[in-house]
Design a protein around this nucleic acid. Sequence first.
DNA 1: GATAAGTGAGTAATCACTCATTTATAGCGT
DNA 2: ACGCTATAAATGAGTGATTACTCACTTATC
Lengths: 211, 211
Amino acid sequence: MSTIKYHEPGRGVSAVDGTNKAKIERAAVWLFAEHGVDGVSTKSISQQAGVSEGLLYRYFKNKDTLARELMRAIHIRLTEMIMAASAREEGLADQVSFIVRHYCEIADDDWTLFRYHILHLHHFPALSDAPAGEWPNSPHMAAVKLLQKAMDGGAMPKGDASLLSAMALGVVLHPAQAKVLGAIDGPLSAHIPAFEAGVFAVLGLKQKEEV
Amino acid sequence: MSTIKYHEPGRGVSAVDGTNKAKIERAAVWLFAEHGVDGVSTKSISQQAGVSEGLLYRYFKNKDTLARELMRAIHIRLTEMIMAASAREEGLADQVSFIVRHYCEIADDDWTLFRYHILHLHHFPALSDAPAGEWPNSPHMAAVKLLQKAMDGGAMPKGDASLLSAMALGVVLHPAQAKVLGAIDGPLSAHIPAFEAGVFAVLGLKQKEEV
DNA sequence: GATAAGTGAGTAATCACTCATTTATAGCGT
DNA sequence: ACGCTATAAATGAGTGATTACTCACTTATC
């Protein structure tokens, strides 16, 4: 696990080593987050990375593959985090707290990559459409499965798991979007207690008492 | 006011008349929502609209102006709706219900334009940054002012109005995003009761009793 | 000396935008 | 009705700039 870092253009992604491949990825994710995949030229990526344009094509088949691999990295990280929460045995409240906390920490850990995810996921329908088979392939579908299991087990009243999941995620993700637009500042983690309270309220769970 | 219509490529925007200008706007908003401003060529807009490429420049200075005018239309419509809610005198609960209901109805009324707004607002920093002066210039800032007034008047406990506003809006807007990605279907208006309950819960308001 | 890493000029396609030209519309005296 | 004219609406080939990507080549590494 990495230490927490903010805002600097393009930390994280792959290991923060000094290889040219990592330089390209860090430059690309920063530019993609800022301008969108179609708003960024391969030339600008190579310039930002400080390498030649041709080198991009030694490590990535084409621009779209580069953009998709970066998106997949954060998409999978978030999905697996929610699946990990789902596997915990301490009850629904614990699972929800786990997700809220780790969502914020993943966002803060590599804010550039996270920003790329929330702003441009829709550019990759194959990642986000997610009709989903046995394994959830998106954060949303993983959360739906978690809530469905809780409903089936009687831990919360039955309802539209997909809708409730979207509402609960929105309590965290829209503030994240507001942070992108400059309407909120500081790390997301600073607001974990507020997010927890909000998500608990939306799901109709009893707030755990203060300490 | 117009009748409710769904999904068809590019209804709404300006009046749904048959003028070439309206044809261009409808084609553009559909393509911009689908592929982003930078992912759409002026040629493709003119083809989708069934006019020549040169005609675009009789009605709009350039591609970016066209994209910005369309975004401004929905951005202002949503902002003014929230300001209208703010002017109502029936109390905070009534204002919140008003906003939730009208947000859904505006989205359903011109889903293509609304989709363009939630997916690509960040492409226009000048519209979304909104440090805001006396008059709120974004839905978020309008909602913040409403909540701040409610807090000052003792209608709800004091807190971070900007954060709470983002959380509350997220209860409606993230499901809207989920609908864009195909994880939720049907008109947003179908979920108004659930959204109201969620927003009330996030804001710590008493749910009005069932009828 | 062999393989891998890295370069950047070159290519055909596409881009946003212009402008000389053509087509449609409107007004008006007869 | 009709022709004549002035203006507005609409066209699409043409412009230089930029695009994603290739490849013959040079440089570094073992």
